[in-house]
Simulated scan of single mutants.
Amino acid sequence: MTAPAVNDASVQASPASVVGSGRRGIPWALTGGLLLALLVLVPVAAGLGAYPIPTGEVLSSVLHRTGLGGTALDRVPESVLWNVRFPRIVLALLVGASLGCAGALMQGVFGNPLAEPGVIGVSSGAAVGAVAALALGLNFLGTWTVPAFAFVAGLGTVLLVYVMSRSGGRTEVVTLILTGIAVNAFAGALIGLFLFFADSAAVSQITFWQLGSLSQATWPKVLAVLPCAVLGLGLAPLYSRRLDLLSLGERPARHLGVDVERLRIVLVLVIALLTAAAVSVAGIIGFVGLVVPHLLRMVAGPGHRFLVPGSALLGALVLLAADLTARTVAAPAELPLGVLTALIGSPFFFWLLRRTRRRQGGWA
């Protein structure tokens, strides 16, 4: 018996390649809604904090700085806005967009809606690099030492996972996941050793970094993340159609001209670039890359043409809102951002598992 032919018509009819006819307008409406929400939340976040600044004054200062009118504020509020608040807001947008987009790519590459960037070891590898720099007291790059070590270690870990999972010139998804799990476990052991031998001051720094935070945001850190984020976010949408074809299965995707192995290599590197850059400056912030693509997929469908850039927008919005909550809900204290996203993301993930199980009639 011959296998049924796979052609462009079947791809166009597949649920993974296009948004359903009843949802055609939803992506555009969602995009507009997300952009509007960002435009509203940014000045609000800039005005809230230990030193409150009215939203009108925030907008006036922005217009003045951009040469579109407005008036400059007094020295103190102007300094708070442009040296403290705006670097943190921009960094939150970049980190959130990077994690959200990386999560959408990860789930598309692995064909698993429960995958997230940490699966391939990039987060734990970056953590090892940062913890090593802190525990050993390394400071030869000044304030850049910890982010630089985290970024290089994160990328190096992903490359190690990929090389170890290859066999016969190919990489199977299951092998890649299992290798990532093993490397994550080994990285956790290394972090434990560094914590055991570190002094109390280093342990405090390591704990703070692992909990995730944007409290150390500066314009130089924004400029450090910006090239990686722009490159990764610019490349990701170019592979949307191939991800839709890959969702049909590896064999049909190959028949339709997709070089599956090359696609997987490129996207794993893009995921590593986005995640390592985000983790290097913000610490470990979980659940954003897992939850954000799910929210969009439930509303707009599985098509990656919207899902990839939409996840970047929603990720930026979610992390900015989470950071605003983290620094205001317990003022003057500040909640660790990674703890807050985990507290919110974990119940949602549990609900998602229950919902999926009910719809599928069980997993047995």
Rank of each mutant, 00 (worst) to 15 (best):
residue 321 A to H: 03
residue 221 K to L: 10
residue 364 A to V: 11
residue 331 A to I: 07
residue 77 P to L: 02
residue 52 P to E: 08
residue 5 A to P: 09
residue 19 V to S: 12
residue 290 L to W: 10
residue 88 R to Q: 08
residue 349 F to A: 04
residue 72 A to G: 07
residue 267 L to Y: 05
residue 362 G to K: 07
residue 347 P to T: 06
residue 209 W to C: 04
residue 225 V to A: 04
residue 221 K to P: 00
residue 255 H to Q: 15
residue 108 G to E: 07
residue 54 P to V: 11
residue 2 T to M: 14
residue 193 L to M: 13
residue 10 S to H: 14
residue 299 V to L: 13
residue 70 G to Y: 04
residue 237 P to W: 01
residue 223 L to N: 04
residue 5 A to I: 15
residue 238 L to P: 03
residue 42 V to D: 00
residue 130 A to Q: 03
residue 288 V to M: 06
residue 160 L to D: 02
residue 28 W to Y: 13
residue 92 A to Q: 03
residue 163 V to W: 14
residue 131 V to G: 02
residue 38 L to H: 07
residue 32 G to Q: 04
residue 225 V to D: 00
residue 94 L to T: 02
residue 62 V to P: 00
residue 84 V to L: 15
residue 353 L to F: 13
residue 265 I to V: 15
residue 73 L to D: 01
residue 174 V to G: 08
residue 105 L to W: 09
residue 18 V to M: 13
residue 315 G to W: 01
residue 281 V to Y: 01
residue 323 D to W: 06
residue 42 V to S: 02
residue 116 E to M: 13
residue 242 R to N: 13
residue 287 F to V: 08
residue 357 R to G: 10
residue 307 L to S: 02
residue 206 I to M: 11
residue 150 A to H: 03
residue 1 M to Y: 12
residue 338 G to S: 12
residue 338 G to Y: 06
residue 307 L to Y: 02
residue 234 G to I: 02
residue 83 N to S: 12
residue 137 G to F: 11
residue 155 L to G: 08
residue 7 N to K: 12
residue 251 R to M: 12
residue 73 L to K: 01
residue 144 W to E: 11
residue 268 V to C: 10
residue 9 A to V: 14
residue 205 Q to D: 14
residue 270 V to G: 01
residue 68 L to N: 10
residue 281 V to M: 06
residue 180 G to T: 03
residue 173 V to P: 03
residue 48 L to T: 11
residue 56 G to K: 09
residue 122 V to I: 11
residue 100 G to F: 08
residue 250 E to H: 11
residue 29 A to R: 12
residue 115 A to C: 12
residue 127 A to K: 01
